[in-house]
Amino acid sequence: MEQIDIINKLNNIFREVMDNEDIVITPESSANDIEEWDSLTHVQLIIAIEKSFNIRFKSSEIRNWKNVGEMIEAIQNKF
């Protein structure tokens, strides 16, 4: 899966989970850039991404993401 496809799909997940249609993510986006991205919405993100891409993350992966780029990398590693 190409990075661009992943990021588009991720963007939709972010908008849905954060309930904010204006969110535009880039690989550099982190929790500091997106107001609604806190520890609770982070859990929702993980679950939504797992469902949407039909993958399962390891604990070590979800604990260490610093930004969207690392999320994308983790997703790509599953394919």
């Binding site: 520890s39 859990v43 993980i46 679950i47 993350f57 604990s59 979800i62 604990r63």
Partner: peptide
């Protein structure tokens, strides 16, 4: 319950 989420959060 989701044990992975429980362990981490």
């Amino acid at each position: 319950t989701n044990n992975k989420i429980y362990i981490n959060t």
